[in-house]
Amino acid sequence: MAAQPQDVQRAETVRFTLDGQQVGAYSDETIWEAARRHGVVIPHLCYKPDQVGLRPVGNCRVCMCEIEGERQLQPSCWRKPSEGMKVSSRNERAVHAQKMVLELLEADVPDESYVADSRLDHWARQLAVGKPRFSRREEPQPDLSHPAIAVNLGACIQCTLCVRACREVQGNDVIGYALRGGDSHIMFDMDDPMGESTCVGCGECVAACPTGALSIAGVDPQQQWAWQGQESEVEE
């Protein structure tokens, strides 16, 4: 889905309005992708367009936008624009949802990040989300059983990027999503310690994790970067 040189030649066949501006989109493009080509980066956490093979799933709900005439807000990473659609990613209602999602997620993660540039903290700063007004969940225990990868689910926002990285990109299928509701969590094999699982330590999940819940074992958080600083130039 990432823009390739040959794609640049493609014609924009769909015209829609994004935050009051007329813009064009390719026929197979999502609102998020079209917006980025036109210089608007909508907040996003469970969606990582620059790592190959990670399809959008629209679960974090931080990229919500308002589409005129639709009752619910829609995830821009999932929805495709249609001709004449009027999309707002920055109006009051959309921004309220984006900020509340960030506040809910921030409420449950520790104050100290496990990486230098947690994407969650980044977007919370960008949208000026203050100190969360909700109480914090009981922090899950760290899992340091694996020699190469540290697991700190306290920082996990359950975006499932690691599940897709492990299952769909690498085909290892070690990481899954256990239980449900507030109890749901990322797990390995049969909810085993990572070091005792069938994990081969490929690191795809670490590269995908936006918050450092999965990070390189034994390396100081300040020396680790979520998403390797990608996208920073377009966002700032």
């Binding site: 679960n59 109480s135 969940r137 359950q158 999503y177 449900r180 509701g181 507030g182």
Partner: peptide, 22 residues
């Protein structure tokens, strides 16, 4: 609803738990 949320999206997974507390 907190008990029955599937855990997929943030507003429901986290929201139902926080609302129950509030």
């Amino acid at each position: 609803f907190a008990h029955e949320s599937c855990g997929q999206c943030t507003p429901c997974r986290v929201g139902t738990v926080k609302a129950t507390e509030l």
